[in-house]
């Protein structure tokens, strides 16, 4: 099962290397990782997607907790949350195909951001499933280039997983 971990870290040099290095040397696989600043200038948030069973995720989480720069980890998989990925796709498009492709883009609420003589470039945001579907829809025309961010996620409603909120860094013991 895929787990989405929302991880707050110190915005200090080397923190991404620490996290990435930990995954590599412990033999954990990262499905996707997105990192950026938060509302606090000295805190960054990593959204990490990892696939594995309960025991595996527990070990990943515990090892992450050991990093001094990791402030808080929330496994939001079973919570209500909103998540988004962003993709940019450059697709082969003869002038005669443009309307047809624009129509597909419209279905996915993708926007054309660039136009070449024989290509069109789209940006599209959404959850992983939608992005996958958009990619598949354009594949028959010939995808020239594709770039995709990792997933970012946020809890719904008034709940939030900030530095000072609720469940602290200490893991609950089973």
């Amino acid at each position: 099962m895929k787990h989405t971990l929302s991880v707050l870290v110190e915005n200090s040099p080397g923190v991404l290397t620490r996290v990435a290095g930990l995954f590599a040397r412990r033999g954990f696989n990262i499905d996707s990782l997105a990192v950026g600043r938060t509302e606090k200038h000295d805190v960054s948030r990593m959204t990490i997607v990892v696939e594995g069973d309960h025991r595996y995720i527990e070990q990943v989480t515990k090892q992450l907790h050991k990093l001094v720069d990791v402030i808080k980890i929330s496994d939001i998989t079973t919570e209500e949350y909103v998540d988004r990925e962003l993709v940019m796709i450059k697709v082969a498009a003869e002038p005669s195909q443009r309307v047809e492709i624009m129509h597909i883009a419209g279905i996915f609420r993708a926007r054309a951001v660039d136009l070449g003589r024989k290509t069109m470039t789209f940006e599209c945001t959404g959850n992983e499933g939608k992005i996958n579907a958009f990619e598949e829809s354009l594949r028959p025309y010939g995808i020239k280039e594709l770039v995709r961010t990792g997933k970012v996620a946020m809890l719904r409603g008034t709940r939030f997983s900030g530095v000072d909120s609720g469940a602290s860094k200490e893991m609950k013991e089973e």
């Binding site: 025991r55 070990q59 050991k66």
Partner: peptide
């Protein structure tokens, strides 16, 4: 003292950090 050691190799009946 290290939570990550508990359950790393064997599953235990009573873990205590």
């Amino acid at each position: 003292i290290d939570p990550a050691e508990i359950g790393k190799i064997v599953s235990v009946s009573v873990p205590l950090v």
